[in-house]
């Protein structure tokens, strides 16, 4: 379980996050929805302990990650996988080496076991025949799926997705969202950051709407869609000018 308690974070005297509190239950998919620059990606960095915070606490499976040393934090991070917005694949390594990177680094598995794991992960993302290709030989959608395979390879309990469908065509977007749903069926906990409402509705168990570093509303998809909060209504209205989705729900 992940719990953020009153997180505040400033950068160059700008308030990036203001008293953000969030709870993500095990085995669920939580979506953090908001416009660009709202502080969504920063929340993922806070969960990983990658950025300093001004105040508050982050608990991962009951452990306060801002009160442990760097070595212990690295151990906590190994239970978390992340798919970056820009994928962050290692461009000097091929697909097989990218996917197996952290398995090989941990040095716990034999070469044969690592190869089998890579095959399994690539099969999960439907890219079995790409092992020898390099990131610059892959399309945007393929890179995203390889990034997912890499995030899953070390068997994390929690997976974080930063804008997983941004820049992808509708077919690739759907494939990625289906993969996220498939992870839920495997009992994984996911946190997805996005600004696309359709995506959020498709995958979310719970939704948190954020604006200018503050949480505007949090709850189930139905609760959020029915919310009478003026920001949420305006945000959704700008996405769906015909307001169809509100009427249907």
């Amino acid at each position: 379980m992940i719990r953020l308690n009153n997180i505040s974070l400033d950068y160059d005297e700008r308030h990036i996050l203001k008293n953000v509190s969030l709870t993500v239950e095990k085995g669920t998919t939580s979506v953090i929805l908001g416009s660009s620059g709202a502080g969504k990606s920063t929340i993922l960095k806070v969960i990983l302990g990658l950025t300093d915070i001004k105040s508050g606490e982050v608990f991962i499976n009951g452990k306060s990650i801002y009160q442990i040393n760097e070595k212990e934090l690295l151990k906590v991070r190994r239970k978390i996988g992340i798919v970056f917005q820009g994928n962050a694949l290692f461009d000097s390594l091929n697909v097989r080496e990218n996917v197996s990177y952290f398995l090989a680094y941990e040095n716990k598995l034999s070469e044969r076991e690592i190869n089998e794991k890579v095959k399994e992960m690539l099969s999960f993302v439907n890219l079995e025949d790409t092992q020898e290709l390099y990131p610059d030989q892959l399309s945007g959608g393929m890179k995203k799926r390889i990034a997912i395979a890499r995030a899953l390879a070390a068997g994390p309990e929690i997976i974080l997705f930063d804008e997983p469908t941004t820049g992808l065509d509708p077919i690739n977007s759907k494939a990625i969202l289906e993969l996220i749903n498939k992870l839920k069926s495997l009992g994984k906990t996911s946190i997805v950051v996005t600004h696309i409402l359709n995506d959020a509705v498709f995958i979310a168990d719970n939704m948190t709407v954020i604006n200018e570093g503050e949480i505007v509303a949090s709850g189930s998809v139905r609760e959020i869609l029915k919310s009478d909060n003026s920001f949420i209504q305006k945000f959704f209205y700008e996405i769906f000018l015909d307001n169809t989705l509100f009427k249907e729900n």
Binding site: K45, L48, L50, E70, L74, K75, V76, R77, R78, I80, G81, I82, F84, Q85, G86, A88, L89, F90, D91, Y101, F102, Y105, A154
Partner: peptide
């Protein structure tokens, strides 16, 4: 590597 988040990726996956 820093600009393309590859360094962040290392840290995120528990590698110094």
């Amino acid at each position: 590597m820093q600009l393309s988040e590859q360094v962040e990726a290392l840290k995120a996956f528990g590698v110094s």
